[in-house]
């Protein structure tokens, strides 16, 4: 079944994962900038990483016929060092015009510290000045609820930010309502041990409805499951969801949010056996 993987760290995954995702129906993958598992030593290391995300990884995905997009930032786990953050943020504008860059992300908080908050505000300002979409990471485990609240307050305090152009990711039962109530989109991350399981994510959809919600794997170098979005779709089917209702969550919703960037484009579905329609980019009429 066709789907979009809106949050995956493919630099940490193998080509086998690309092949399996495409075989399962993935039509586009979006990769937010994140932590490497160790602190990068300098702004130059981020420059190289941004080149990897904007030059190399789209080519690797294209080998499997998969569209690859990315988001750029300094991730919250390295945001305690404000000087480094300033240097990295100064690098980002030169990449924003690249054809696969969708916006600023995944920004946010990790341990809810003052410096992290300062760097979050700097990223929000950068996104506002360059009219970019925003993808927000929310903290893990015991820090999530507080960090989500603090993040929402930063976004609300900046009058240039339009809530519908911001996705707050990794929501769970105790944070989803406050995110949706502020008019943002919310992402549910299906990740073993922490974040959501497929069953709980479907529960959240049952309770809150399918509007402004998407599913993602956030697969990375940790224990994670690149195909978990389609696994969840199978579970939705077992729970009696129609194909149309499933597709809304795993395909239409991410497409609607991401199409707010004119750069987001998908290969149109093969309409018959003889013709593959031309690529169609951006929101376009009738979407």
């Amino acid at each position: 079944m066709r789907y979009i993987e809106p949050h995956a760290h493919m630099v940490s995954r193998t080509t086998d994962d690309y092949r399996a995702m495409v075989a399962a129906g993935c039509e586009a993958v979006c990769e937010p900038a994140f932590w490497a598992g160790f602190d990068r030593g300098s702004a130059a290391a981020f420059h190289d990483y941004f080149r990897q995300l904007t030059e190399y990884e789209p080519r690797r995905a294209a080998q499997f016929g998969l569209k690859h997009f990315c988001w750029l930032c300094l991730n919250p786990k390295e945001a305690e060092d404000v000087k480094l953050a300033e240097e990295v943020l100064a690098l980002i504008p030169q990449f924003l015009d690249r054809p696969t860059v969708l916006g600023i992300g995944e920004i946010g908080l990790n341990k809810n510290s003052r410096n992290e908050l300062r760097v979050l505000e700097m990223h929000v300002d950068l996104a506002a000045r360059h009219d970019q979409l925003i993808l927000v990471h929310t903290p893990h485990l015991e820090d999530k609820r507080k960090g989500t609240r603090l993040t929402l307050d930063v976004l609300k305090a900046d009058s240039r930010i339009r809530p519908e152009r911001v996705i707050i990711d990794h929501v769970e039962e105790h944070t989803v309502r406050m995110v949706l109530d502020r008019g943002h989109w919310a992402g549910m991350t299906l990740y073993p041990v922490s974040k959501c399981t497929p069953a709980r994510a479907i529960d959240i959809l049952d309770v809150y409805g399918s509007e402004r919600l998407w599913l993602n794997s956030a697969c990375d170098w940790g224990e994670s499951v690149p195909l978990v979005v389609v696994h969840t779709a199978l579970e939705m089917r077992r729970r009696g969801w129609s194909q149309e209702a499933i597709e809304r969550v795993i395909y239409d919703n991410p497409r609607e949010f991401l199409s707010q960037s004119p750069k987001f484009c998908l290969r149109e579905e093969r309409k018959d056996t003889t013709e593959v329609r031309r690529l169609k980019c951006g929101p376009g009429p009738g979407f």
Partner: peptide
Amino acid sequence: PVPKAPGKGA
């Protein structure tokens, strides 16, 4: 917010 991040993990 806390004054300083006490490491990275939760």
